[in-house]
Amino acid sequence: MLGNDIVDLDLAKIQSNWRRKNYLDKIFTSKEQSLIASANKPDEMVWRLWSMKESAYKIHNRKTGIRDFAPKRLSCTVYVDDYGEVDINGYIYFTRSNVQASFIHTIAAPVYDNLEKIKVAIYELPDHPVDYKRTNPGCVSHHGQYLALVY
């Protein structure tokens, strides 16, 4: 199983004010909050962690059938070179994030070695293929200008 999540950073800027009182505390563990507080680019860290959680949740949700909104129970660890892992109740999902100026895209897999095998396609409006579902992507993520597919 594969997961992926894309964040359009320009849209995130207007759609979400993470500096709002109590916002970070609702979704990030204390460890994640210190990563954000000490980051050179806090916006980037917020959305990187968020896309890690979302991409891992998408696998976990399909695997367990559990649907809930408990972002704080998804605990992220960030490693060098954009790698990371997300712990959801003891299930570990490995992630790799692609951080660009205008978007952040994270892929997730339950087995570390599978990360290297994932094929990624990212499309920007207006160039979204209309028939992408026929290509049977393993996971689909939309946000703002972007459509991200993984195989």
């Binding site: 995130a12 759609q15 979400s16 709002r20 916002y23 609702k26 979704i27 979302e54 909104f69 972002p71």
Partner: peptide, 11 residues
């Protein structure tokens, strides 16, 4: 609704 905005709804 974007999942990041669910937090705003809760707040």
């Amino acid at each position: 609704i974007n999942s990041a905005n669910l937090v705003d709804i809760v707040l």
